[in-house]
Design a binder for these strands. Structure first.
Lengths: 243, 243
DNA sequence: CGTTGGGTTGATCGGTATCAAATAGCGTGG
DNA sequence: CCACGCTATTTGATACCGATCAACCCAACG
């Protein structure tokens, strides 16, 4: 994978959500990076680890997750190409959760040193990153709402719509069909329910003609019904910079 | 309330969690601000609003909350003196949730213009704030775990321990007793359960001799049991800067 | 006082966990 | 190509947690 294919999703997103300038993005693209490949289910960064690099998802999906004492696990976020899932390590050395590959994926690692130098030289890059972490935080807050208040049926609809909107931004939605490479077990861990229950909710969505999920791919059949279930208000994604 | 009493909780927190320098803090303390008072339950900032100032909680408690279409509400975070609950508005104009006073409280409003000027002059102040928003995000992630995976009994214990640790940092815990000015209805909205169920869980905690909550004040009786229930791992609060 | 907003308790219902078992899909090696 | 084994998916039966509905209690306060 060449540099040409690594940056576009990130740039697309930063331009749209943070209003990044072309100069700042060009400076970013000049940074050296190391590509590493991970396989489905492989842990990229472990809770407590202190990485000296930030990673950019070049291809594939990852997730943040926390495991509690009794072994139960909560998925905190799903990350797609163009995401910087451990940008926070620029400021806090230690991970407070795991970063795990959901699918086979390619990550570009960029050293903290180089990033910090760039930010010092071009404060606009720092602002851009800060904004990025703010959108990340806004997504986490919506995730709390999802887990705390919505019925599982609506919850799953919301999760799917959010992911679709983010994928759409980087051109990964075709014909209202897109990848969501989570097992039902993992979908359950994202929603705070069991895999058995997730399976039944998926069946309901299928029977109701809303959507179908097979081997990591979702097809939306009834957009109107889906909207109604998800009650999705995408302002929190800040798809226009607006600042 | 004079300037002397407004800054200490924030400074205490920033020194501990972001490793802020005295010079940066002094520069911060020189900023002009406007004090405003809010009464219990009063909305400070409404979803969609575009404030031109950031507020510092000088006294009292606030919360972030989101209300969904069917009227259900999720409390996203609890804010205590020294918190900057809408720092994100420096970068994103519009609120994507409500900020509401949980108790009568006093907020110091600082204009975005002045803050941005200071950040440009002293990049260390910007870093400090960025870090602050990162801790905020880490707290949100733990909140997801709490709502998604823990039993209500353990969930309430965790919520109480987290709040205690944050209050301890600003010197508001005495004799393992501290303020938590939420009604049972609100505690329920924070945990994603009803007020009736919250009431029963509180009764259980009382009967089991763990703690007592009366008129907005918690007293811990059995610290050991509480720890066991909460399974609290405070690393996410970043109580030492460590970067 | 009377009013009001929280808190408390009981009865019942529904959603979700749990346990168990069968089925389907997929990669590997014979 | 088929047999095997692993993992994910699917379905059923049952138990339990927490929602809902309804009442009542209590303390603060005008």
């Amino acid at each position: 994978m060449t540099s040409d294919r690594i940056w576009p999703p990130l740039f697309e997103r930063l331009k749209t959500t943070t209003g990044a300038s072309d100069q700042d993005l060009q400076a970013l693209a000049a940074l050296p990076f190391t590509l590493r490949h991970y396989r489905e289910n492989q842990t990229v960064l472990r809770d407590g680890e202190q990485p000296s690099e930030c990673c950019l998802i070049a291809d594939g999906f990852c997730m943040r997750a926390k495991t509690i004492a009794d072994g139960r696990r909560q998925i905190l976020s799903i990350h797609i190409p163009g995401d910087l899932p451990n940008l926070q390590n620029l400021h806090y050395a230690a991970m407070d959760h795991d970063l795990v590959a959901l699918s086979d994926c390619t990550l570009a690692f960029i050293g903290h040193r180089a990033l910090k130098d760039l930010i010092r030289e071009r404060p606009g890059v720092g602002d851009m990153f800060w904004r990025d972490t703010l959108v990340d935080a806004a997504i986490s807050r919506e995730w709390i709402v999802n887990v705390g208040q919505r019925s599982t049926y609506n919850r799953l609809a919301h999760l799917i719509v959010e992911l679709r909107e983010r994928l759409r931004l980087i051109g990964r939605v075709i014909d209202n069909t897109f990848a969501i490479p989570l097992t039902q077990e993992q979908l359950g861990e994202a929603m705070g329910v069991t895999s058995v229950h997730t399976n039944r909710i998926l069946r309901d969505l299928r029977i109701d003609g809303v959507l179908e999920l097979q081997r990591g791919t979702v097809k939306i059949f009834d957009e109107h019904k889906l909207q109604e279930l998800a009650q999705f208000d995408g302002r929190y994604l800040h798809l226009s910079p607006s600042a």
